[in-house]
C-alpha cells in the first residue's frame, strides 16, 4: 500500500521528464512536434548544428559559473563574519537576506529591472550575473550557517595563538571545516541559476539563456532538439551531483 503510494508520487514527478526524453527521439519534423512519428537519434546530431541553442546553453553555463563563484565567495565570508562578530544592524542584514528567499521571484525580477532601467545599466550578461548572484547569496549563507552552528571557535584561536595570521587561519582552519556547507550552498546556487526563468526574464535584455530560449519556443511547440539538449543536461547534472555529493558525504564522516 505505502509502496504503491510512493511509486505513484515518483511517477508524478518523473512523468513529464519521461515525455521530454521520449520526445527527444521523436522523428517528427512538423510543429508542434507532439505526434509520435517513429524513433530517431537525429536530434542529438542536429542539436550540434543549432548554434543559437548551443549559444544559449553556453550563456546559461557561464552565468551559472560566475554567479555561483561570486555568491559562494560573498556568502561564505559573510556567514562566517556574521557568526563570529557582534555588530549593530545584524538584524537588518538578516532581514534583507530573507527577502530574496521568501518574496515571489517575479517581485525580485521586476525590482531589479526597475533598478537597472533607472540607473541606465544596459541589460545583458552583466545584469543576469548580478541578478543570479543576488538570489543565490542567501542560500549560500543559510547552508554555511547551518554548518557553523556548533562550530568550535577555539580551534581558530589556537591557530592564531600559534602564530598564524587571520588569512592563513581562514583558509587552513575555517574553510575545511565548513566545506560541506559551502559545497551544498554552491550546488544550490548553481542549480537555481541554470533553472532560473522568472528573474532572468526581466533582467536579460537581448541575451537568451537556455530557459528563456525554451520559453520563446513554447508558443510554436518545443522542438525535439531542445528536448535532446534537456536530456543531456539532466544526465550531466546527475553525474555532477553524484560525483560532488559522494565527496561531500565522505567529508562529513
Amino acid at each position: 500500500m505505502s509502496i504503491l503510494f510512493c511509486s505513484l508520487v515518483y511517477l508524478f514527478l518523473f512523468l513529464p521528464i519521461g515525455v521530454i526524453v521520449v520526445n527527444s527521439f521523436n522523428a517528427t519534423t512538423t510543429k508542434p512536434y507532439q505526434t509520435w512519428k517513429g524513433f530517431t537519434f537525429d536530434w542529438y546530431g542536429k542539436l550540434f548544428d543549432n548554434s543559437t541553442l548551443l549559444n544559449a546553453f553556453g550563456t546559461t553555463m557561464a552565468i551559472a559559473l560566475i554567479s555561483t563563484l561570486l555568491s559562494t565567495a560573498i556568502g561564505t565570508i559573510a556567514a562566517v563574519g556574521m557568526y563570529k562578530y557582534k555588530f549593530k544592524g545584524k538584524n537588518v542584514i538578516d532581514g534583507l537576506l530573507y527577502i530574496p528567499v521568501v518574496i515571489p521571484e517575479i517581485v525580485l525580477g521586476i525590482s531589479l529591472l526597475t533598478l537597472f532601467s533607472n540607473t541606465h545599466i544596459p541589460r545583458g550578461m552583466l545584469t543576469l550575473v548580478l541578478a543570479h548572484t543576488t538570489f543565490a547569496i542567501p542560500y549560500v549563507i543559510f547552508n554555511v550557517r547551518a554548518r557553523l552552528s556548533g562550530y568550535d571557535n577555539s580551534i581558530e584561536e589556537a591557530s592564531l595563538d600559534l602564530g598564524a595570521n587571520r588569512i592563513t587561519t581562514f583558509f587552513h582552519i575555517t574553510l575545511p571545516v565548513l566545506a560541506p556547507g559551502i559545497g551544498g550552498g554552491a550546488l544550490l546556487a548553481f542549480t537555481l541559476s541554470i533553472d532560473d526563468v522568472i528573474v532572468s526574464y526581466f533582467t536579460n535584455g537581448q541575451v537568451k539563456t537556455f530557459p528563456l530560449k525554451v520559453m520563446e519556443s513554447i508558443k510554436s511547440g518545443v522542438a525535439p532538439d531542445v528536448n535532446a539538449l534537456s536530456t543531456l543536461i539532466l544526465i550531466g547534472t546527475i553525474l555532477l551531483v553524484v560525483l560532488t555529493q559522494s565527496n561531500l558525504f565522505k567529508k562529513k564522516k
Binding site: 565570508i77 556574521m82 562578530y85 544592524g89 534583507l96 537576506l97 517581485v107 525580485l108 525590482s111 543576488t134
Partner: peptide, 30 residues
C-alpha cells in the same frame, strides 16, 4: 575585530543594499 568584521560582512551588506533594498524602494516609489 573591527577590520575583519567590516571586510567580512561589508560586501554582503553592500550587495543586499544595492540589489535588494534599493530596487524594492524603487518599486515602492514607482
Amino acid at each position: 575585530n573591527t577590520l575583519p568584521a567590516v571586510t567580512m560582512v561589508g560586501p554582503v551588506t553592500l550587495w543586499l543594499a544595492f540589489f535588494v533594498a534599493i530596487p524594492l524602494l524603487y518599486v515602492l516609489v514607482m
